[in-house]
């Protein structure tokens, strides 16, 4: 099994999404409130994962600009749940080996007084291996 194929399977398993259910209506992207900030839009995530074009997605900032507001999930007429798919791609990226996005040493410089401690712990957990 190729690497891409395995990654695609991981994404589908993690998210529980079946991209084949998509009928390409674009309602997810029509509904997305952060559309302009996203390089790849919700409908593109669905079709690119299905086609196995994962590299551009994994390299894209869209992974972090998705607000996880779940509007696309709420309004998709076919129940495809694009936001779950985006989250799964994000997890795949973060779970790759040696891919720490934060180190413990980075933290002190980033702390500001208004940030709740909980957020720092969450960010550390989310962005490190």
């Amino acid at each position: 099994m190729t690497n891409t194929k395995r990654m695609k399977e991981d994404i589908l398993r993690m998210s529980g999404v079946n991209p084949r259910k998509c009928m390409k209506c674009g309602k997810c992207s029509g509904t997305c409130p952060n559309y302009d900030e996203m390089e790849y839009h919700p409908h593109q995530f669905v079709s690119m994962v299905e086609e196995g074009r994962l590299e551009p997605l994994l390299a894209s900032k869209s992974l972090y600009t998705c607000l996880s507001c779940m509007a696309c999930i709420e309004r998709c007429p076919r129940g495809v749940e694009p936001a779950k798919l985006i989250e799964a791609v994000r997890l795949l990226k973060e779970r790759q080996k040696d891919g720490n996005h934060l180190t413990a040493n980075d933290i002190p410089a980033r702390i500001d007084d208004d940030m709740p401690q909980q957020a720092i712990v969450t960010a550390f957990r989310k962005y490190t291996k």
Binding site: K24, C25, G26, K27, C28, S29, G30, T31, C32, Y35, H41, H43, A71, R75
Partner: peptide, 22 residues
């Protein structure tokens, strides 16, 4: 336009339509 309307929100006497053009 190939795409779906995601949201319609009434504002004043207009209806703001947000949609995708695929």
């Amino acid at each position: 336009i190939k795409g779906m309307v995601g949201k319609v929100s009434p504002e004043g006497n207009k209806l703001k339509v947000q949609a995708s053009d695929l």
